[in-house]
Each structure stands twice: as C-alpha cells, then as structure tokens.
Amino acid sequence: MRMDHTGFRLLGSIDARVGGHRLDLGPRKRRYVLAALLLELNRPVAVERLIDAVWEGDPPDSARMTVQGHVYRLRRALTGVRLETDAAGYVLHADPELVDVFRFRRLVAEAASAGDEPGADLLDEALGWWSGPALGSPRGGGKWLEAAAVELEEARLAAVEELARRRLRLGRPERVVAPLHAIVLANPRQERLVSLLMTAFYRLGRQAEALELYERTRRLLAEQLGVDPGPELRAAFQEVLSAGP
C-alpha cells in the first residue's frame, strides 16, 4: 500500500495521509511531536522525551501542557491509528509498514542479504521513499530530532553508496552518474561517493570529467579541512590516469 493513500512520511517533510487525504497537522511543533512518536512507533515515549524533541535549549514552563495539547489534537486528527496514554507517556500504535522510515530500513536490510541485481532493485525502491531532507530539516526543534535527522541522512548516503557499488559491479555506470552526481553536489566532501562517481565517469569514457571532479574535491579538502584525498579517492584517480587519453 503506497503512502499517498494511507501512511506517514518522515523522509522529507513530516506528512500524514489517511484514505488518500492529506491531514492538516497544524503548527511545526505539533509535527515534531508526531515525528517523535513515529520514530518510537509502538513504544512509549515520555513527555520529557517529547519536550526534548520539540524545544531547542531550555523549554518554557508551559512545555508539558503544550505537548499534552498537541497530543490531544493529534489524537483527534489521526484516524485509523491509536495514540494512547501510557504510564510512561504516550504510545502511537500503527503498522510499521505505514511509516516510510521503517519501509526504508526494511528494504535496506533485505538488500544486504540479496545478490547485486535484486539488491540494487531493493535499494532503488528504498531510496524512492525519500522526497527531501529527513524530518524536513527540523530547525528549531530539540537535539533529539536533529540527531535523528542526521542518523537518517547518514543511512541514506550509505544506501546511495551501496547502490552505486552494485550498479558498477553490474556494469551499469550510466545508472550511477545522474543520481550520484546530485548527491555529490550536496555532499562534496564524501570521498567514497566522489570516487564512485569518478569511476562511473571513467567507465562511460568521460575521463576529463572524472579528473576535473578529483581536482575540485582535492582543492576542497585542502581548503576546508587541510587534508589530502584518502586512499579510495586516490585509487580512483590512479585508475582514471592509467586509462590514458
């Protein structure tokens, strides 16, 4: 069941749909409460934990009451799932398959034990659940949500890297360049991703672009971090050079 019908999105903006209708989740902090409950799906979340997810720095004296108000309004809005009060806090009960984060993680886990061809298909499906920065880049939220967003983005980059490696092993560099190029532009210091993009360029006969990418990355690493390229990136550079003009 696709989540444009019923489900929850965290791999992009925080969103909820029931019966094909997008729900009005209200203000940003209410969305953060929902995101925290979804990340801990089917497990109790203490009010203090929700406060940590919602407020950056010291919360106001009214934080507990505000969180309770957000939970009350979410409970009224979220038909088809159960948001219950627990001795330890609140529990959102739902099938994990309704939440894009859990679908993404399941598909990545399945890919890890699959061969290159089916594994690549699973990773491609997993990455298809992403529509933007995790949790909509939770600026102004608490450290818990910010850390969760970073962790999810790292998982995304790892999946992108593994998909690129599999497609290169399958001899399909043409399916690596476009998606990997966009990721490298957003993460120009990720040397493993840069080396994979260089390899894809070189295998497509685009040696000049591979060398230009290496030089641009080398300068960036030197200027911003004061370091030289690591062994994997240097190896990709040598592979391109050895191919000759």
Rank of each mutant, 00 (worst) to 15 (best):
Leu123Thr: 04
Arg203Gly: 00
Arg167Asp: 11
Ala164Arg: 06
Asp116Phe: 07
Ala208Val: 10
Gly205Val: 11
Pro179Met: 03
Glu117Asp: 14
Ala243Leu: 13
Arg192Glu: 15
Gly205His: 04
Ala111Met: 06
Trp129Asn: 05
Gly142His: 04
Pro118Ile: 14
Ala112Ile: 03
Ser195Tyr: 01
Gly141Met: 08
Phe237Thr: 02
Glu174Thr: 09
Ala149Phe: 05
Tyr214Gly: 06
Glu161Ser: 14
Arg103Glu: 15
Leu145Lys: 06
Leu107Phe: 06
Ala235Gln: 13
Glu215Asn: 09
Ala112Cys: 05
Arg166Cys: 11
Leu213Met: 09
Ala236His: 00
Phe104Pro: 11
Val108Asn: 05
Arg175Lys: 13
Gly205Lys: 03
Leu221Phe: 07
Pro173Asn: 02
Leu168Thr: 08
Ala126Thr: 07
His181Ala: 15
Ala126Asp: 11
Ala148Thr: 08
Pro173Cys: 13
Val194Ile: 13
Leu197Glu: 08
Gly171His: 01
Leu197Val: 14
Glu174Gln: 12
Ala155Trp: 04
Asp228Ser: 14
Ala186Val: 00
Arg175Tyr: 04
Arg175Phe: 11
Ala235Pro: 00
Arg166Met: 05
Leu221Arg: 00
Ala114Val: 13
Pro138Arg: 06
Glu223Asp: 15
Arg219Trp: 10
Pro188Ile: 05
Pro133Tyr: 03
Pro138Met: 05
Gly132Phe: 08
Ser242Thr: 10
Ser137Asn: 14
Ala109Val: 11
Leu213Ser: 01
Leu127Ser: 10
